[in-house]
Amino acid sequence: MNSKKVRILVAKPGLDGHDRGARVVARALRDAGFEVIYTGLHQTPEQIAETALQEDVDAVGLSILSGAHMTLVPRVKKLLRDNGMGDVLMVVGGIIPEDDGRELINNGHADQVFTPGEPLDNITDYIGSKIRS
């Protein structure tokens, strides 16, 4: 770990406007000492991958509450790989049924999936430990 602050992109892909979770998590990450870039709403996977590249981030957090996660998460992951950012930590949050979450992780589309009720400290601790290790 060098002295550079860990940079995290919090992104809202798709048409879903529910940004309460994304904004609360973004603020918790900032309070935990990370540098947070929040994309704002209604981003295409292409826009997210482009921002991740431009901002040279260490982790990407996608927030999806619309049920489109099985389409959107693999697309973002693929575009990150295409940009040479396949090893960037990928965390997904939202209303993700357990089976879907497991599938996203097993297929290498996401490193971790957080669902409603997850304490903020668990999220910040997870990201901190993964990136610093």
């Binding site: 798709g14 048409l15 879903d16 209604h42 295409t44 619309s66 489109a68 099985m70 389409t71 959107l72």
Partner: peptide, 22 residues
């Protein structure tokens, strides 16, 4: 569904994965 809410038809690129979902 979200495409309808956002003014996109089901065949729009922006609707991918969202049609009939929520």
């Amino acid at each position: 569904d979200l495409p309808t809410i956002m003014g996109y038809d089901s065949d729009s690129e922006r609707s991918l994965g969202e049609v009939g979902r929520c």
